[in-house]
Every structure is written in C-alpha cells, then in structure tokens.
Simulated scan of single mutants.
Amino acid sequence: MKTLLLKKEEVSRLINMQEVIDSVEEAYKAFNSGQVEQPDYLGIHLPSPRGEIDFKLCYFSENEMISMKSSSGGFNDNPTAYGVPSGMGTILLFDARTGGLACVMDGSLITGLRTGAAGAVSVKLLARKDARKITSIGTGNQARMQIRAINEVMKIQEIHAWDSSPESLAKYKSDIEREFGTPVKAAKSKQEAVEQADILVTTTRGKGSLVEAAWVRPGTHIVAIGTDQKGKQELDPEIFRNAKIVNDSLSQCTEKGETWHPLNKNIITRNDIHAEIGEILLGKKLGREDEEEITIFDSTGMAIQDNATASKIYQNAVEQGLGTYFAFFEK
C-alpha cells in the first residue's frame, strides 16, 4: 500500500474557498444525519512560553475515511528561536475499509480555510439578507480567512476592524483593501467597531469579555470563532440572553465554547440553544426568522470539517496526479 504526501503549497493548489464552503456544509449535515463518529477532542497545554496542541479524530461513513488532525498554536517563540510558525497542523487520512494510511497532508491551511468557511455558512443561514457591513474584532490570519469566505456568499460593502495591536490593525487594513478593494475603517475602540456591525466576527484568543451586550445592535449576526477551549472568552454572556443561539456542536460549545459562559452564569439553559447548524441546513430547524433578532453562531471547530475538507483535497490530488507517494511497507 502507498501513502500520498501533500505539502502545504500543494494543498493550497488543490482546493478553493467555494469548495471548502461546500465541504463544510456537507460536514455539518453529515454530523446531524448519523453519518459521523467524532470522539471528544484532546488538548495538551504545555508550559509557557509554549502553547497548546489539539488532536481531533473523526470517521465519516459516507466517504469511508478516518481523519486525525494535530493542531498547535501559541508557540510564540517558534519563528525567532526555531524558524518555524507559531502554529502548525498535520492531517492523516486513513482508509476505513482497511485501516491503511491513505494520505498525510499539511493541516495548517485546512484549519484556517474550514474555519473561515464555517463563518460563511452561518452568514448564509443567519445574517440579514441586507447585511453589508462586517466588523472584525481581531485582525490575524483567521480574521482574513473569514473575510475571504464571507466574500463568497455576500457582497461586503465595508469592514470595520479593531485589534489590541495597532500594527496588526494597520497591516490588516492594508492587506484586505489590496486583496478585495473593500474599504476597511480602523476603529478607535471596540465599541465603535461593534456598533457599526451587521455581521460581527470575533477571532481573538481572548480570555475575557471583549464585546459588551449594550454595543450589539438588533439584527446583528455574530460569528464567534475564538473560544474553543475552557478559559477563553470574547463575548459578554448577557448577549446570549435574548439571542438565537446556534452551535456547531452542542456538546463542544456547552463544555468549552462561548456558550459555556452564559450557561455557567445561569443566563440561559441548554433549552435556550436553538439548534446545531447542521439541523438548520437539513431543514429541521429554522434560521433567521425576523430582521431584529440577534443571532449567534458559536463555532468550536469539529473534526468532521477537517475530514470532509481533507478528503476533497485528497480526491482532487489523485485526480490531478499531484503529490508524492511513499510506502511504509511493501506487500
């Protein structure tokens, strides 16, 4: 048996953002259709100045693939001390029919792409149809990915952005305006940025409330990306009190997502969570129902997203003859 090796540059050539959005939609529907086995993911937190490594595992019966992804982040000394990125990822794809390793691919790009696509899927289902202005709290790589993905599903008129780092904010403004030609307004405060939002995207690694409930206008759709582990937080829990709450995974979001915070403070109960996003895609639950409701998509990230996206990349690689094969053993 031979195993396909795909490097980061090859992965980037093998999929586009619309294909990722389609794969993520497929993943969400599969998750709520009994086609997925997805154990709780594991995380290892290492002593400072090192960061964390997460491991996510998934079996998807439709494509007969088992995926396993390692994803690291917060290793801030890496670029200067070791000459490697502060966050890295690797995905292994196993053929579920044999248990054999079918593909090893760089996973750092996939994580960014599928997380961006998740936000775009939520915008399609939960944002107002006349939404035109996006606010980004946080201006790192994922903030850019969110814009790239959301740009596929709606016309973005303007972007308001805030970051605790003026240098990062300035670079984000320059990069986004050059890539999309969409004006970016650098906000002087978080409140100023949030009050402009039709769609609010939070992509920080925050450890406290960054967005206050009083700042969020009726009709806003919130894409909450940054909270995927206990100890992280971006939103004032009061925002959830009268909002329509949608999770990617109810079990994950109530244990380690943004949704945990209002639950912990008894602001909401589990019964107040409207749906998992796959249920809306399948037509089991409704999306946005009126122009005034505040909608929240709490995205903790799921292994099935990696599985569906990586499997599409693997399929494209085989069809295009891209990548390098190697064998651990010969029959």
Rank of each mutant, 00 (worst) to 15 (best):
F297N: 10
E10W: 00
F55W: 01
I294F: 00
D236N: 10
Q320R: 14
Q252V: 03
D248E: 06
E10L: 11
D77F: 12
E292G: 01
R148Q: 15
F328A: 14
D106Y: 03
Y325S: 13
S249F: 10
T254W: 00
K265S: 10
I21K: 00
S33I: 04
K285G: 09
S168D: 06
G257Y: 01
Y59I: 07
G283R: 05
D77G: 10
S67M: 01
D290W: 00
I159A: 08
R97N: 08
S122V: 03
K185M: 08
R241N: 06
A310N: 02
D175L: 14
I239N: 04
F31E: 07
L92E: 09
I176S: 08
I15N: 03
T80Y: 15
L113W: 08
A30D: 13
F180N: 11
A118C: 00
I137M: 05
M1K: 14
T227F: 02
L281M: 02
K244Q: 10
M68Q: 07
T220N: 04
S122C: 13
N266L: 07
S72F: 04
D163G: 10
L14P: 11
L282F: 06
D228A: 11
A81R: 15
K312N: 14
G107C: 07
A214C: 09
S86Y: 05
R132Y: 00
L126P: 07
F55G: 15
N16Y: 13
D198L: 09
R178M: 09
I239D: 04
M154C: 04
K171M: 10
K188H: 14
L57P: 06
V104F: 04
Q305D: 02
A214R: 11
G283M: 01
E167I: 13
M105D: 01
W162T: 14
L281G: 12
D236I: 13
S70L: 01
L113C: 12
C253N: 09
T324G: 05
W260K: 00
V121S: 00
G181S: 03
D306A: 02
K331V: 12
T3G: 08
E177Q: 10
T80M: 15
L126T: 13
D306T: 07
G119P: 03
Q157P: 10
E177F: 01
T203S: 12
G112L: 06
V246G: 12
S165E: 01
